[in-house]
Design a protein around this nucleic acid. Structure first.
Length: 277
DNA sequence: TGGAATGTTCGGCT
DNA sequence: AAGCCGAACATTCC
C-alpha cells in the first residue's frame, strides 16, 4: 500500500496528533515483524514522549525521548501496513499487531498489517543529527534531488528505468504505482536503459516525478485496497491514475490499448504508443 | 484453483 | 561490479 505519497500523508496526520504526546503503554500481538524484541520496544516506549515524526522514503521515523535517553522508532509499512489513531476502548480491527496507548486515556495509535511484510525497529539514538544505519543506504528524496543531480545519476546507470525508480538506493520512496504513473507522464518506456535516455527526456522524467508525487500528496495518496491515512480515511489519487490498474483500457492521451508486462519483476502497465525507449 | 497484489531481501547466474 | 531473475515472506481476493 504505502509509497511516498501515502507515507507522507500518514506522517502528516501522525504529526498533527502525536507530537509532544506521552505514551502510557505499548503492546504487541504477532511479533514476527519486529526487528527488535517486543519487550525492549515496549519498555522503551512506556512513559516516553514522542518528540518528532518524520518520513524517510517509505519509512516512518519517530524520535522518542524517555528520561533523557533518545530513541529512533523506525516503521516500514510493507505492503498492507496501516497506522491509525483510534479511541482507546474501540474494538481493534483484525490483524492489529501493535497498539500504543497515549497518555490521557482517550486515544491509541494502532498498527494493523494483514500480510505482515511491514517492519518495526527500535534503535538507541546516539546522535540526533545522524541517520539510523538502516536509512543510510537509501538514495535521495525524489522531491529534494536537484534536476542536474538526477540526470547525472540516471545516465550513469545501465539498468532499466523502471528498475531504477523502484530501487530505494537510487531514489527513496517510489513504488510500483508511482513508477508506472511517472514513466507514463514522462513518455518513457519502462524498459528503457538509464544510460540511453536523452538529456531532455531525463529532465522530463525529473519533472514527472515531482508532478506526480505532488499531485498524489495533494490528493491524500492512492487507495487501491488497503491504504488509509492516520485517521482511517482513504486517499483519492487512484481516481487520477492514468496507467496503473488500467491495462487493456485506452490510453487517455492517444487511445491505444494500454499494455501490461513484467519489468523488474513487477507488473507494469504502459502505453505502447506514448512511451518510448 | 492458481495467480496476483501498493515491498524488501537473498542467493544464484551472467 | 552491475544487473537480472526467481524465490521467500503471509494473507486476501478474485
Amino acid at each position: 500500500m504505502p509509497e511516498l505519497p501515502e507515507v507522507e500523508t500518514i506522517v502528516r496526520g501522525l504529526r498533527a496528533a502525536l507530537i509532544g504526546r506521552g505514551i502510557e503503554e505499548a503492546g504487541f500481538g504477532h511479533r514476527d515483524f519486529l526487528r527488535t524484541p517486543a519487550a525492549r520496544i515496549a519498555r522503551a516506549l512506556q512513559g516516553a514522549v514522542i518528540q518528532d515524526i518524520r518520513r524517510a522514503g517509505k519509512h516512518i521515523v519517530f524520535a522518542i525521548e524517555k528520561r533523557g535517553e533518545k530513541f529512533w522508532w523506525i516503521v516500514h509499512l510493507g505492503m498492507t501496513g496501516q497506522f491509525v489513531i483510534e479511541p482507546t476502548g474501540s474494538e481493534p480491527r483484525p490483524h492489529t499487531h501493535a497498539w500504543i496507548e497515549l497518555k490521557g486515556g482517550r486515544d491509541s495509535l494502532r498498527y494493523t498489517d494483514i500480510r505482515r511484510f511491514g517492519r518495526m525497529e527500535l534503535v538507541v539514538c546516539e546522535d540526533p543529527s545522524a541517520l539510523p544505519a538502516r536509512l543510510a543506504r537509501l538514495g535521495p528524496e525524489p522531491l529534494e534531488i536537484a534536476e542536474a543531480d538526477f540526470v547525472e545519476r540516471l545516465l550513469a546507470r545501465k539498468a532499466r528505468v523502471k528498475a531504477l525508480l523502484l530501487d530505494q538506493r537510487f531514489l527513496r520512496g517510489l513504488g510500483n504505482i508511482y513508477a508506472d504513473e511517472i514513466l507514463f507522464r514522462a513518455g518513457l518506456h519502462p524498459a528503457a536503459l538509464g544510460s540511453r535516455v536523452s538529456r531532455p527526456r531525463a529532465s522530463a522524467l525529473w519533472r514527472a516525478i515531482r508532478e506526480v508525487l505532488e499531485e498524489a500528496i495533494a490528493h491524500g495518496g492512492s487507495s487501491i485496497s488497503d491504504y488509509v491515512d492516520a485517521s482511517g480515511q482513504a486517499g483519492s489519487f487512484q481516481d487520477l491514475h492514468r496507467v496503473y490498474g488500467r491495462a487493456g483500457e485506452p490510453c487517455l492521451s492517444c487511445g491505444a490499448v494500454l499494455r501490461r508486462g513484467i519489468v523488474a519483476g513487477r507488473g507494469t502497465t504502459f502505453c505502447p504508443r506514448c512511451q518510448h525507449k
